[in-house]
């Protein structure tokens, strides 16, 4: 089911299908390994930024951006 990463539950896996933020933002995310096709682990998702594990590192994504990262929970 299509969802966004801001709705994903902590400690679950999430497969990214598309990212709808601006070009600079897409590029920055991609350089950190967050891009369509990637499976990331959601570490923390409370009321602030969403923290994910991707390619061995932890990255915090502000909620504004997190709402634009679509995909599905696995």
């Amino acid at each position: 089911m299509r969802s966004m990463i801001s709705l994903a539950s902590a400690r679950g896996l999430f497969r990214i299908t598309s990212i709808a933020c601006g070009r600079g933002c897409v590029n920055k995310l991609a350089s950190m390994g967050i891009m369509p096709g990637e499976v990331v682990r959601v570490i923390n998702n409370g009321s602030g930024p969403v923290m994910v594990e991707v390619k061995g590192s932890r990255v915090a994504i502000g909620r504004g951006v997190a709402m634009k990262i679509y995909g599905e929970e696995l």
């Binding site: 932890r58 994504i61 502000g62």
Partner: peptide
């Protein structure tokens, strides 16, 4: 505009 998107590595 808005603050630049918050995308930040959390170092160990």
């Amino acid at each position: 505009g808005k603050p630049s998107p918050f995308i930040m590595e959390m170092p160990p």
